[in-house]
Design a binder for these strands. Structure first.
Lengths: 132, 132
DNA sequence: CTAGAAGCTGGAGCACGCTCCAGGCAAACA
DNA sequence: TGTTTGCCTGGAGCGTGCTCCAGCTTCTAG
């Protein structure tokens, strides 16, 4: 078979620097997330360096969505653990996602209202300047 | 030269506990905000206890709006300092508010997009459950 | 084969935004 | 009047989410 050449499967994996560039997370953060259980232990090269698979990448992308919509690391840990326990946890995961989604909707509504109040303040300042 | 008490003005002021209840901030946070310059030194009773005026309250309400829309304490400090320097800083303040408003609009848009992606994920899980 | 770049681990450190004392004076109620 | 409740200050401490580092191993280009 092949000798020193990398096989197709291996060619599909990414080094940590590439994942960092791809996701915008720092290498330190990627390692920190793995250490904290947000990312399940990722594949390794013969020498022990991380090799991320496509599945790892899409999992990280989901994590980022959760994080960017305000989910805490603690909640992401719970979610990751469910994920790790397989399909039987899908109802729980669904539940968690729905709750999160609802809180997000509320938060967006709140931000919109605050935005309107800020607009009013801005208009007030604009009027003030116009009159002087 | 306002050392008199039992004036209508005094009747209009609030103790820190009342402001805490009113705004949802803790007494410690109110003192911390004052210490950090977010709130300019508030009036005191003869004995040295804080007495918040209507103007103090509405300033705090503006601060809360800024905070709740994601402004950092550092940025609020700058804003507070401008405010403290009087009307000549209105153009700067307007500028800061507009920038903040724009960032907020962007953030809301981003949250909405992430929300849609979460909806898709939720739908995926729902389908999965339905088929089993 | 080798130099330099990239990655590893465990653990310390940091920025932010509060939060919680201790020890003491102020205010309100009975 | 007393005593209970409230507020004061300065400063230490904390939870979160990273970020940095030392000392060492692995990879890769030439």
């Amino acid at each position: 078979m092949r000798m020193t050449e990398t096989q197709p499967l291996l060619a599909e994996t990414l080094a940590i620097s590439e994942v960092a560039t791809l996701t915008g997370l720092s290498q330190d953060t990627l390692r920190y997330y793995e250490k904290s259980g947000l990312i399940s232990p990722v594949g390794r090269s013969a020498g022990g360096q991380r090799r991320y698979s496509r599945a790892d990448i899409s999992w990280i992308e989901l994590l980022l969505r959760l994080r960017d919509t305000g989910m805490s690391v603690a909640d992401m840990q719970r979610f990751a653990e469910m994920h790790h326990h397989g399909d039987t946890t899908i109802p729980e995961r669904l539940d968690l996602l729905r709750r999160h989604r609802d809180r997000l909707a509320e938060r967006i509504r709140g931000l919109q209202l605050n935005g309107q109040a800020l607009d009013a303040k801005i208009a007030y300042y604009e009027d003030f300047l116009e009159e002087s």
